[in-house]
Amino acid sequence: HMTFVALYDYVASGETDLSFKKGERLQIVNNTEGDWWLAHSLTTGRTGYIPSNYVAPSD
């Protein structure tokens, strides 16, 4: 899985979304859904959809 880092805080707007904090590391499970990607937080262990423009590839 690709690892990304959150650029901003995001508060989930629905049950399927994943809240995260700036700097949180996320594994992308599925990024074929356009602007919303299914991600797994390496910080909280939770999985949900995130806005793709809130994250950047982590080196």
Rank of each mutant, 00 (worst) to 15 (best):
V55W: 04
A56M: 11
A56G: 11
D59P: 12
D17M: 14
D17Y: 14
S19W: 04
W36R: 12
D17L: 09
A39G: 05
W37K: 04
S41V: 02
S13C: 07
Y10S: 01
T44K: 02
T3W: 15
E33H: 13
K21G: 07
T47G: 06
T32R: 11
R25N: 09
M2I: 13
H1L: 15
Y54R: 06
G23K: 01
A6F: 00
D17E: 15
L42M: 10
D35Q: 14
V55K: 02
V11L: 11
H40K: 14
H1R: 03
P57Q: 10
T47L: 08
L18F: 09
G14V: 11
S19N: 05
S41D: 04
D17H: 15
M2W: 08
A56R: 11
L18P: 05
R46P: 00
E15W: 08
S58G: 10
D9Y: 03
I50R: 00
S13M: 13
S52Y: 08
V29G: 05
Y8E: 08
Y54E: 02
A39M: 12
Y8R: 11
V55D: 02
I28S: 05
V29T: 08
N31L: 12
T32C: 08
Q27T: 10
T47W: 12
E15I: 10
L26V: 05
L26A: 00
D35I: 11
H1W: 14
G48T: 01
G48I: 01
H40A: 10
L26N: 00
P57R: 07
Y54V: 06
N53S: 15
S58W: 15
S41G: 01
N31W: 14
I28D: 00
T3P: 06
H1C: 08
N31A: 14
E15D: 13
V29R: 07
A6V: 10
S58D: 14
V5E: 06
H40R: 15
F20P: 00
T16Y: 14
Y49S: 04
M2D: 12
E15G: 08
Y49M: 12
D59V: 13
G48Y: 03
Y54W: 07
E33S: 15
E15Y: 10
D59Q: 13
F4E: 01
T43A: 11
D9R: 01
E15N: 11
R25D: 05
E15R: 07
G34R: 14
D17V: 08
A56W: 09
E24I: 00
T44A: 03
I50D: 01
E24R: 00
W37E: 01
W37R: 02
W37H: 03
W36K: 10
D17R: 12
P57E: 11
S58Q: 12
P57C: 05
P57G: 07
T44C: 02
S58V: 14
K22D: 01
M2H: 12
F20C: 03
Y49K: 06
Y10N: 03
M2P: 12
L38A: 03
L7D: 02
N31F: 11
T43C: 09
P57D: 07
R46K: 14
E24A: 01
E15T: 14
G48P: 00
L26R: 00
Y8A: 14
L38Y: 12
D59R: 02
T32L: 11
K21T: 12
Y10D: 00
G48D: 01
S19F: 05
V5A: 04
P57V: 11
P51L: 06
D17I: 08
Y54C: 06
K22G: 04
I28K: 06
R25L: 12
K21S: 12
E24T: 02
D35W: 10
S19C: 04
L38G: 01
Q27R: 12
S58R: 04
L42A: 06
E24H: 04
R25F: 15
D59N: 12
S41T: 02
H1T: 12
G48A: 04
T44Y: 03
T16F: 15
R25A: 09
T43G: 06
T32P: 10
V5Y: 10
L38V: 07
H1P: 15
T43V: 12
T43E: 14
G45T: 03
S58Y: 15
T47P: 01
T47F: 11
Y54N: 03
E24K: 00
V5T: 12
F4G: 03
L38K: 05
Y10M: 03
Y54S: 13
R25Y: 14
K22E: 07
F4K: 02
S52K: 12
G23W: 05
N53I: 11
I50L: 04
T32I: 12
T16M: 15
A39Q: 00
V5W: 06
Y10R: 05
L7R: 04
V55Y: 04
V55E: 02
V29A: 08
P51V: 01
D17T: 09
D59F: 12
Y49E: 04
A6I: 03
K22Q: 10
T16C: 09
E24C: 02
D17C: 07
V55S: 03
Y49R: 08
V5M: 07
Q27P: 01
T43Q: 08
R46I: 08
D17W: 08
T32D: 13
T3M: 14
V5P: 01
V11I: 14
L26W: 03
K21R: 10
S19E: 06
P57W: 10
F20L: 08
S52Q: 07
S41Q: 06
L18R: 01
N31K: 13
S19G: 08
Y10F: 08
W36M: 12
N53Y: 11
E33N: 15
L18G: 02
N31G: 13
H40P: 00
T44N: 05
A12E: 04
E33A: 12
W37G: 00
G48N: 02
A6K: 00
T44G: 04
V55H: 03
Y54G: 06
G14K: 14
V55F: 07
E24N: 02
K22T: 08
A39I: 04
A39Y: 01
R46Q: 13
N30F: 08
D17P: 03
L26T: 00
Y54K: 06
P51E: 01
L38F: 14
E33V: 11
N53H: 15
K21H: 12
I28R: 06
E33L: 13
L18A: 05
V11Y: 14
D35G: 11
V29P: 04
L7N: 04
K22W: 04
N53E: 11
L26D: 00
H1F: 15
Y10Q: 01
N30S: 14
D35R: 09
V11T: 14
L18M: 15
A56L: 10
K21C: 09
E15K: 11
L18I: 11
N53L: 10
R25H: 11
T44P: 01
T43F: 07
D59I: 12
E33R: 09
V55L: 08
H40G: 03
K22C: 05
K22H: 05
S13D: 09
A6H: 00
F4Q: 03
I28W: 02
V11M: 11
D35L: 12
Y8T: 07
H40C: 09
T43R: 09
L42S: 06
F4N: 01
G23M: 03
G45P: 00
G45C: 07
W36S: 06
E33D: 14
Y49F: 14
H40N: 07
P57F: 09
W37L: 07
G23Y: 05
Q27S: 12
D35N: 13
K21P: 01
R46T: 07
A56I: 14
T3Y: 15
W36E: 04
G45S: 05
I50T: 01
S52G: 07
N30T: 12
Q27D: 08
P51I: 03
T3C: 07
A12N: 05
A39P: 00
V29H: 13
V55I: 09
W37C: 04
N30I: 09
L26M: 10
N31P: 11
S13V: 12
S41A: 04
P51G: 02
T44I: 02
L7M: 09
L42R: 04
A12V: 04
F20K: 01
A39C: 06
T16G: 14
T44D: 05
G45L: 06
V11Q: 13
T3E: 14
K21M: 12
S13E: 12
A12G: 13
R46S: 08
S52F: 09
K21D: 07
F20G: 00
W37Q: 04
M2R: 12
G14E: 10
L7Q: 05
H40Q: 12
D17Q: 15
T44M: 03
T47V: 12
S41R: 01
H40W: 10
